[in-house]
């Protein structure tokens, strides 16, 4: 999960693209350390001390983790639940709507190997 997203964020650094996390860990200090250790470069909302029972996941009725939404530049939900190559494809398509052509490529070894 992390390596793929890290690669995506890095490749699209100069594009109108953002990956926004909603982190549902209870312990803020611990998660800050993980962000550091795993080089998670993107910004996350914190779901609060209730963890997965926090206000943001509750408002969005999130029942499983990870849950993914992809929004277009107007803030409209265009894809749900896309991960890995499907996420790349969704983002590529939405950027194409803005006349931006990108080719997302991951280094198989480094980028897609599981960190778990």
């Amino acid at each position: 999960m992390f390596p793929h997203e890290r690669s995506l964020v890095k490749q699209l650094a100069d594009q109108p693209f953002a990956l926004i996390g909603v982190n549902s860990d209870r312990d803020l200090d611990q998660i800050r350390q993980i962000v550091k250790d795993k080089n998670i470069s993107w910004r996350s909302f914190w779901n609060g001390p209730e963890g997965t029972g926090g206000p943001i996941s509750k408002a969005w009725n999130v029942r499983g983790w990870p849950t993914i939404y992809v929004l277009d530049a107007k803030g409209v939900i265009r894809y749900k639940g896309v991960r890995g190559p499907a996420m790349d494809k969704a983002v590529t398509a939405l950027l194409a709507e803005m006349d931006i052509t990108v080719e997302i490529k991951h280094d198989e070894e480094k980028d897609t190997e599981s960190s778990e």
Binding site: M1, E5, L8, Q15, P16, F17, A18, L19, I20, G21, V22, N23, S24, D25, Q30, I31, I34, K38, S44, F45, N47, G51, T52, I56, S57, W60, V62, W65, P66, T67, I68, Y69, V70, L71, D72, A73, K74, G75, M87, V91, L94, L95, M98
Partner: peptide, 16 residues
Amino acid sequence: LSDYRGKVVVIDFWGD
């Protein structure tokens, strides 16, 4: 979230 209007946004509910 609306600060990012104008960009394609992936929202990822995650946890370690």
